[in-house]
Design a protein around this nucleic acid. Structure first.
Lengths: 205, 205
DNA sequence: TAGATTGTTAATCGATTAACAATC
DNA sequence: TAGATTGTTAATCGATTAACAATC
């Protein structure tokens, strides 16, 4: 069996990719683990170690081709292909996400949006028409989407997440301030400004 | 010198607090490290170890008083007092944050909002009037706020962050998809859906 | 070539878990 | 009391860093 990559390493790859894409736009052709590390506050040794989990991407003496490493990281992270997203909950935050151009630029496209408010269904947000929550499983399954963004109230998050999984969703970006209890093979990431603020206030007087 | 608490431990405390506040609302009077751990997917041993960094909050045989532990954690995290926030960037995301009730409920109050678009200045968002970016340092300093939320484009984030710090800001919740380079005594937390999505796509086919 | 930088190994450091005496 | 659960120590596990031979 292949050795599995630590999740903490995987979590750093998008940060490497972002910094490298920035270099690419700036026209920087090659970089070193030292330079890349300096730009994102990670040690050169750690970057080399992380990358070595996936292969050999550099050249002794000269470092890494930015373009090549971007391509490799995109491939490793499976973002060398477009991904369809489902958005559930079209409140202020859901609306902001639906109209955010950053997703499309990185290959993430919202293909379905749901809200349980009848006043919202039928309206167009971003590129899609808001649908009611009826038959959400079926509609998600038909779309084939594997990733959902959840921007519903905490009280609804668990139930909605379970419906999404029945519809074939395998990864959830959860904006609801609520720990989801889901099967181990479902990938969940949390975005929660309150816990981040409370983390920082610890260090303030 | 007092031993310092690992940042990774501090980062878990808001999650403990959230789960405990939920129990409090449910009317649950006491809990155990086991029960609390099960609810958020953390081992009982780790919860006891983390809490032991700050004192002794439980009783052998019976566990923890939920109310007491909530009070203690709020005090440890300094969220037993209100905090003023500055919001910079009133686009879709900034608007969503300005109107989000979750902040006020947890003691975080937006007292200033800035945007560089003249069409927006003077408008009211949430409880505050949108101001232009002129003299942002002075206005922030006058407010006395120590925490800012940054929802400006990546290209502006570094410069704005530096102005905020000159105005006395000591902690920044950065929504701009951009690594900030700031003095070590400034606390920065990042919220970035793209990197979270890219983390998850690694595990998808 | 000489200098620079990789990929990798070994050493260090830090975090998590297991175990259990203390005790409510 | 008997059972449950804490706080803490020691053991384990995993992640980071330092160092350097290989080599571009």
């Amino acid at each position: 069996m292949e050795k599995s990559i630590p999740d903490i390493v995987v979590g750093r790859l998008p940060r490497y990719l972002r910094a490298l894409e920035y270099m690419l736009r700036k026209g920087i052709k090659t970089t070193s683990s030292q330079e890349l590390g300096d730009s994102i506050g990670i040690s050169a040794a750690q970057i080399r170690k992380d990358l070595s989990q996936f292969g050999e991407f550099g050249k002794q003496g000269t470092g890494y081709s930015v373009r090549f490493l971007v391509d490799q990281l995109q491939s490793i992270l499976h973002v060398n292909q477009p991904w369809d997203l489902v958005l559930v909950g079209v409140g202020d935050l859901g609306t902001a996400l639906a109209t955010y151009q950053g997703f499309v630029n990185r290959g993430f496209r919202i293909v379905l949006a749901f809200d349980n408010d009848p006043a919202k269904t039928g309206k167009i947000i971003g590129d899609v028409t808001i649908l009611g929550m009826d038959d959400i499983e079926v509609k998600v399954a038909e779309s084939g989407a594997k990733i959902a963004m959840l921007t519903v109230p905490a009280s609804a998050a668990q139930e909605v997440a379970e419906s999404l999984i029945k519809g074939g969703i395998r990864a959830i970006l959860n904006y609801a301030p609520m720990q989801l209890s889901l099967p181990a093979d479902i990938h969940v990431e949390y975005i929660d400004p309150i816990t981040k603020l409370q983390h920082m206030t610890y260090y303030l007087d």
